[in-house]
Each structure stands twice: as structure tokens, then as C-alpha cells.
Design a protein around this nucleic acid. Structure first.
Lengths: 218, 218
DNA sequence: AATAAAGTTTAGACTTGTCTAAAAAATTAT
DNA sequence: ATAATTTTTTAGACAAGTCTAAACTTTATT
């Protein structure tokens, strides 16, 4: 059994590993949890004793198989709860994160199995992120950042890179939601902004937006 | 904002107060939380500083108006989650308590408002206990312990006094569930057991059962 | 009313998780 | 290759919440 603090560390390492593949540095974990490197050092020792991470002093940390499975299960819970909040409780996609951060720590296997069923066994959360299955396996779909699309390429909006409230609300305002079809009509070398077609409307989006929106080409 | 520990103390005092009305003793709280009297003493000081309880050394403790409202809100959340678990996730009434103990500490007003709506604004939890409204007001219904009914009196089963898994499973086995109509046909002076009629079947129940089952006479 | 018993509080210690400051190791630059 | 810089770890401290043991109040008993 893991404490909430331990679970948060496991989740942070899990996310960092999925980006960088190499041993995760103390500093990176500290940054992602908004804590101090010294606190991370302390906690890593505990996690190492519990055999969920491999740790060599000064050499960074990696999840063990057990650690990866444990972390994936927390992510699974987080994302299922997000779906629940949006689908059943009328939350919008920019409101779910903080509540899901709390709900993900609830301990009950039956609860999460039944929730999964109630929601119809969803595969992705409201931000387009995949929901790990019971064994922690994640089925990633083929997706590209909008910024990597060439002129005249098109696809469906399937996810966001940045899940901050601000960004999501901005997308809402522009009418950009998951499932929408987007076609790139122009690219500006000048500022890397691009013109897109969405709902037959022309829209100009900055490079920052394009770098945080995932498209499934088609 | 209150910690989980603080919330648990408030809830315990709330429940004890609703039984006994007088100042709640340190020992009573310790017993109900399975902790030590010394720990209770420490915590009560904190709660007193936060102005949710009134406390005079050696004289027991009572909730302030703020404390009562705070506690009622926690009970409200607990009972709404119990309804959710039974109605939406197919939990049985003997499985919900431990999970609801965790869920009651989730902090989100929107979450609980929407949950209330999803469940159709229920007034009672799966054990027949009333759900406090948003202002902490509880609408108690007229109910009597089965053991207080006289021969030939009848009514509907509306609640339990003991919510332990064992007791609830025992009731399930006997076919006694909330909503069922029960008529007392005989009382034994010898062991205070009684014979009842339920679903047109005759059943003998011990005094211990009869002392833990609430009936709305009719 | 004095004493015994029961209940309550205090003092000091321990655990978890955090922090700052300082030391040690690794990396980067010259 | 040595020095400077950055990163990481350690040491010591602190807050929350708990515990045991001892001291202190209150209540009950004789």
C-alpha cells in the first residue's frame, strides 16, 4: 500500500519516463512536483526500499516493472475519474484535473472496475490521453502535433499536450474541441503561425497553440 | 480548510452529539475513532483554535454552529457517495462504508452538487440514514426500533442502527431489506425474541436484530 | 471527608513528509 | 586537467498526527 505522497511521486516519474526514456533526475521530479530536490532524494530512498524504483546515487531513477504497473494504475484511475466528471457530472474539460488528482488516490478495486463499466470502458480521457488498461498497458494512437503538419494536410483533433485550464478554455473559445477536423491551409515562416480550416471557418493559430494540439492525420 | 484527520474528528463528535446531546467526552471520541484519549486531547485543542468546537478542560466538547455545519457537510458527502456506489456502481449496502469514508474527504463543491443531481437528490442513504441538505439540515422521519413494536403492530423497514457488514449481510440472508413491510406476530418474554411476518413468510428474529432495525409504523 | 478509581491532560518521543543550508559528486568550461 | 558550475545528497530542523507514561482532575466509594 502506498501513501498519497508516494503515489504522486510514482505518477510523476511515470510521466517523466514516458517522455525522456532515460533515468529521471532528482531535479526533474522536484520540478514536476513543485517540491525541493532534497525532498525527492528522501522519498526516492523509500520508493527504492519498496522496490518500485531502481536507484543509484547521483544516477537518476527508473521505475521497476512493479513501479510502472502501480503508476499506470494511478493514471488509469485519474483518467477514468476525468471521464466520469465530464460524462456524468457535466464538468468541462478544463475543470476536471484538480478533482481527479484527489479521486485517483481512492483505494478500491471494485470501485474502479465498476466505474470503468459505468462509463462504457472508455479508452481516452477528456483531453485525448489514453487510459491504461487493468494491466497498465497503454494503447497509443498515431498522432502528430498540429505544428508538424504541412500545408494542405488535414486530420482530426485527438488530444492536447498542455492541459492547463487557460489553454483548454482558449481552445473552447476558438471552437477547437476533440473530434473536430482541421486542415492546414497556410504556414507563416515569419512567426510559425498557421492558418487552419475548422468547421469550414478559417482560423489563425499561433505556434504555441500548434505545438500543443495533437492531430490524427487522415 | 480542514485536514482529513480534523474532518474525521468533527464527524465523530457530530455523531456522538446526535446521540447524547451533552458535552462529548475525550474517551468517547477516542473510542469512536479507535485512537487514544491523549491524541483526542491534542486534536481538540486544534479544533478549538479553529472555532469549530467549544472546549473546557476536563469538561468535554461541543460543536459550534460552524462545526456542526462543517460536520453535516461531511456526513452529507459520505451518504451521497454511498447512494452513488449502490445506485450507479452496483455495490451492496454492506460494501459501501469503507469507500465512502475515503470519498467523503474529496474537496469540490461542484462535484457534490452534481453528484446530488445525478442521483436525483436522494434524501436517505442505502442504510436509511437521512442525507443532510446543503445547509446541514437533517429531516428525520418518525421511526421506531423493531424491538419497541407491540404484537400486531406493523410497518415498513426504513433503516438500521448497526451498519456493520456482518449485520447487513445477515439481513440480506433473511430477506430483510429497506422498504419491506414487517408485522410483529409474537413476542417472547423469555429471550425478547419476536416472530414477524415478512413477504407473507413467518420469521423469528432475536432481540439483537430487533434492536438494530428501524420501522416506520403504519 | 478521605481515599480509591476513572477519566483527562501534559510531556516527551516517534513517523511521515517537508524544508534550508552545507557537503559531496558530476558536469561543463577554460 | 583543473577550476567553476550545476546537480545531488546529507544533516538537522520543523509541522501534523499519533503514541506511552506520568501527572493531574473529577467522580465514586467507603
Amino acid at each position: 500500500m502506498f501513501s498519497q505522497a508516494e503515489e504522486n511521486y510514482l505518477k510523476a516519474i511515470y510521466h517523466l519516463e514516458s517522455d525522456s526514456k532515460v533515468g529521471i533526475s532528482t531535479n526533474a521530479i522536484a520540478k514536476s512536483l513543485a517540491t525541493k530536490a532534497s525532498s525527492v532524494s528522501d522519498m526516492i530512498k523509500k520508493l527504492s526500499d519498496k522496490e518500485v524504483v531502481l536507484y543509484k546515487k547521483y544516477k537518476g531513477v527508473t521505475l521497476t516493472v512493479l513501479g510502472k504497473k502501480t503508476a499506470a494504475n494511478i493514471v488509469r484511475k485519474h483518467r477514468l475519474w476525468e471521464v466520469f466528471l465530464v460524462e456524468k457530472l457535466n464538468f468541462s474539460w478544463d475543470e476536471v484535473h484538480d478533482v481527479a488528482e484527489q479521486l485517483e488516490h481512492i483505494k478500491s478495486q471494485k470501485l474502479i472496475n465498476q466505474l470503468d463499466a459505468l462509463l462504457g470502458f472508455p479508452t481516452h480521457d477528456p483531453h485525448g490521453d489514453p487510459i491504461p488498461d487493468k494491466d497498465g498497458v497503454v494503447s497509443a494512437i498515431e498522432k502528430s502535433l498540429l505544428s508538424t503538419l504541412k500545408v494542405n494536410e488535414a486530420g482530426v483533433c485527438v488530444g492536447v499536450n498542455d492541459s492547463s485550464s487557460d489553454f483548454l478554455q482558449f481552445l473552447d473559445k476558438k471552437g477547437i474541441t476533440l473530434g473536430k477536423r482541421i486542415k492546414v491551409t497556410e504556414k507563416e515562416d515569419f512567426d510559425d503561425s498557421l492558418s487552419i480550416l475548422i468547421d469550414d471557418k478559417k482560423l489563425s493559430v499561433s505556434n504555441k497553440i500548434a505545438n500543443n494540439l495533437y492531430i490524427k492525420k487522415s
